[in-house]
């Protein structure tokens, strides 16, 4: 996927990590480790979308050095766990495609709001493209963000009455 060097945790080269453990205490530890690993991985590689069907292509779920793969249903159950904390959401009903939010949508929203307010750009119309690929945002974490995720984050702002969404088709927004 990417050339980004990942600092794999010790679990990644521990074969039992790729089998869902039946012992409840062990399993909770294992799932927690997976959750943090997935989020770290996605953050490092700027992955916003994971397709479970193509999971074996991700080095995340497929450690070729010890020849272990994470099963699809296990991936889905871990992603469902992530969903509970607002760090992931399935895009389709079959739960095959998942958006990963290594920052929750609320965190993204407040990040954007801070960016806007720090530049005094309230009440100005900003295009989504500017937010995603603009020169000003190059330093920000949401640079290069996927549009679907960005819109979802902005909708959170909308819900908080801090933003007026003008002309979705024109892909512009205004923050108060």
């Amino acid at each position: 996927m990417t050339d980004v060097e990942i600092d794999w945790p010790w679990q990644y080269s521990f074969p039992p990590f790729f089998t869902l453990q039946p012992h409840p205490e062990t399993r909770s530890k294992q799932v927690a480790a997976w959750k943090s690993l997935i989020l770290t991985y996605c953050q490092k590689t700027k992955t916003y979308l994971i397709d479970v069907r193509e999971a074996s292509q991700f080095s995340l779920f497929n450690n070729s050095t010890i020849n272990r793969k994470l099963e699809h249903n296990v991936i889905i159950s871990i992603l469902s766990e992530l969903h509970k904390t607002g760090n992931a959401a399935s895009v389709d009903k079959a739960k095959n495609r998942w958006e990963i939010y290594w920052h929750t949508l609320e965190e993204w929203a407040s990040m954007i709001y801070e960016f806007i307010s720090s530049r005094g750009m309230q009440n100005t119309v900003v295009t989504l493209y500017e937010l995603m690929h603009g020169e000003d945002t190059q330093e920000e974490e949401f640079y290069g963000m996927q549009q679907d995720v960005l819109i979802k984050a902005l909708k959170v702002l909308e819900g908080a009455q801090m933003r007026d969404h003008i002309g979705r088709r024109c892909s512009r927004c205004k923050v108060f």
Binding site: P15, F18, T19, H23, T26
Partner: peptide
């Protein structure tokens, strides 16, 4: 395993048991 003293690795090579590093190496 039931006592949480080991953990399993269920792969095509068969079922193996490893020391439970999840609980001990945290």
């Amino acid at each position: 395993e039931k006592y949480g003293k080991c953990c399993r690795d269920d792969s095509i090579e068969g079922l193996r048991f490893y020391p439970n590093l999840f609980l001990t190496k945290e």
